[in-house]
């Protein structure tokens, strides 16, 4: 992952943090679209399906990209602490209660699991059919960006319970997306690629 993409992940984390802290959904959606957050997991999946070096590079990208995203979330929390009413409260009114978004993206339900399954498969299929730009839509459906940004916010705010729940939600999405993408790439290799090595 290039420095530019890592920077985009950091900025997306800050956007997401301010959206979560102020109950502003469109800020969250903006963060989901600008963050190149699907690529690291699809890279790992491609490496697993093809037995290539993409797996290792993907793991490095996950650490760099999602580390930057979480740091961006923490940075947003610091801004909230300075200008708002607390680490995870921007102190400004919006069209949603701030805690509604925080609660949603720190809670794992059966429907969030299904969305992760479908999102992982859809994202990999879009890459297989050369529609990479549409993976932004998958990122909007998944909870990866807000969950990891919320983790960073909660950590600097000392809200360890919230941090754990948000990290759990994000980690579940990450794991399911990787598994589903691996299945799609493996299927693509068997049906279209049909080569022994990449």
């Amino acid at each position: 992952m290039t420095a530019g993409k890592v920077s985009a992940m950091f900025v997306a984390g800050s956007f997401a943090a301010l959206g979560l802290a102020s109950g502003t959904l469109h800020l969250l959606i903006g963060a989901m679209i600008i963050a190149p957050g699907f690529e690291p997991f699809s890279r790992v999946a491609l490496g697993l399906a093809h037995g290539s070096r993409a797996r290792r590079r993907g793991l490095i990208d996950i650490v760099k990209g999602y580390g930057a995203l979480t740091a961006g979330g923490a940075g947003g929390a610091v801004l909230c602490a300075i200008f708002g009413d607390g680490w995870i409260d921007a102190g400004v009114g919006s069209y949603l209660p701030a805690e509604a978004l925080q609660r949603y993206f720190s809670t794992t339900t059966w429907s969030s699991g299904i969305v992760a399954v479908l999102g992982g498969a859809a994202g990999a299929l879009l890459l297989v059919v050369n529609r990479r730009v549409l993976t932004a839509g998958v990122m909007v459906a998944l909870a990866l960006i807000p969950a990891f940004a919320l983790t960073g916010m909660a950590v600097v705010g000392g809200e360890w319970g919230l941090a754990g729940r948000a990290l759990g939600r994000g980690a579940l999405d990450a794991a399911v997306v990787t598994v589903m993408s691996t299945i799609v790439f493996w299927w693509h290799r068997r049906t279209a690629h049909r080569r022994t090595r990449v």
Binding site: E39, S42, L46, L127, V128, V129, R132
Partner: peptide, 14 residues
């Protein structure tokens, strides 16, 4: 068809 090769996918997500 609009199927990408493995190399194209890998380069696209780089």
């Amino acid at each position: 068809s609009d199927t990408a090769t493995a190399e194209e996918i890998e380069l696209a997500i780089g």
